[in-house]
Design a protein around this nucleic acid. Sequence first.
DNA 1: TGTTCATATGATTATGTGTTCATATGTTAA
DNA 2: TTAACATATGAACACATAATCATATGAACA
Lengths: 106, 106
Amino acid sequence: MENKFTPDNNTEMPDLEVLFDLADLFKVFGDSTRIRIMFTISDKEMSVLSIAEALKMEQSTISHQLRVLRQNKLVRVRREGKQIYYSLDDDHVKKIIEMGLDHVLE
Amino acid sequence: MENKFTPDNNTEMPDLEVLFDLADLFKVFGDSTRIRIMFTISDKEMSVLSIAEALKMEQSTISHQLRVLRQNKLVRVRREGKQIYYSLDDDHVKKIIEMGLDHVLE
DNA sequence: TGTTCATATGATTATGTGTTCATATGTTAA
DNA sequence: TTAACATATGAACACATAATCATATGAACA
């Protein structure tokens, strides 16, 4: 069994600390700018400027939000010359968004 | 295929409106009180007061947050006499939390 | 009907958060 | 080293939101 919160009625409340972490994680997904950034870089890594251009938003706005994504280990960073390329960290991230989409679209 | 956001690199940005809805959905999960409520009622339906007692929080706090959960169709409501019983709406909700837990606990 | 109990709601307050502007940091190339 | 470029950061502001207190709504039952 992967964890204590499975669909087959085996629910047990995790420690408060874990619950706070969990809420914090979802908070990161709870902003449309960050969601759009995640979609934008889900196929391919992209530089900060090209993300900003793709979303028609300020560079600093994107940079601030990328930091949030970074701090929560949702994106990977790679420097190449002057540019810094961001990509989604793992398929976990995609799956969480996918789950949410299923609920929103149903 | 369920939607456009699958792990096998078939990502396409949904409409802005959908992205806002998606962010709003995750916003609901982004509060520890609401997360705790969802855990509390994940096994069994419970009245507002008993949720408040279980979490040692004010009745009105719980009531306010239950409204948020209700508005986002994350809980089911059933009246029985004076009491109103809340339960999780579907296993979708559990799965989203489970996904998040996996990421937090890894 | 009137009282009691369970829940919901409105107003207020404190706190958190996203964006912007200005500027700093750090890299490349002349 | 200096200039040009890409990114990050700090401060300020506007806005959103969670908790609390007080009170309203609505159901049950004497």
